[in-house]
């Protein structure tokens, strides 16, 4: 078992938290039903099997929805991103003018320091990243 990197990491998600420190986003794959899920947990939420493993993601995804939370300072763009591997995850969109963000945009994974002691996955539109 990986060492716990923060009070917000636990025996169930320790590998996920440690992977984040090296810039990798892990999700869970169920060997029993073949489905992927997120957040990572000990049991598959689709078939309840305990036969699950961590799966490294490509870091490619698409914006499912987003909100420009202007009452926060600095402004945060909250979002759901659908990963190429299937699950839609809660995240943020960074590194782009919020007014240029749209649902359906292709985005790429990055990481940002968080108050939990390990970095959290965030996403940037691909066009912006290449510009």
């Amino acid at each position: 078992m990986s060492e716990l990197v923060s009070p917000f990491s636990n025996p169930e998600n320790a590998e996920w938290a440690v992977a984040a420190t090296r810039g990798e986003l892990l999700i869970k794959h169920c060997r029993s039903c073949g489905e992927n899920h997120y957040y990572p947990r000990a049991f598959c939420p689709f078939c309840q099997s305990a036969d699950t493993e961590f799966l490294a993601t490509s870091g490619e995804g698409e914006i499912y929805s987003f909100a420009i939370t202007r009452v926060l300072n600095p402004v945060i763009v909250h979002a759901y991103v659908t990963l190429q591997e299937g699950p839609t995850i809660m995240t943020k969109i960074v590194g782009v003018d919020p007014d240029r963000i749209a649902i359906g945009q292709q985005v790429r994974l990055g990481f940002e320091p968080s108050k939990m002691g390990f970095p959290m996955p965030v996403f940037t539109p691909v066009e912006t990243a290449q510009a």
Partner: peptide, 9 residues
């Protein structure tokens, strides 16, 4: 752990 740090209001 997968949601709290994003400060979703």
């Amino acid at each position: 752990p997968s949601e709290f740090p994003y400060d979703l209001l």
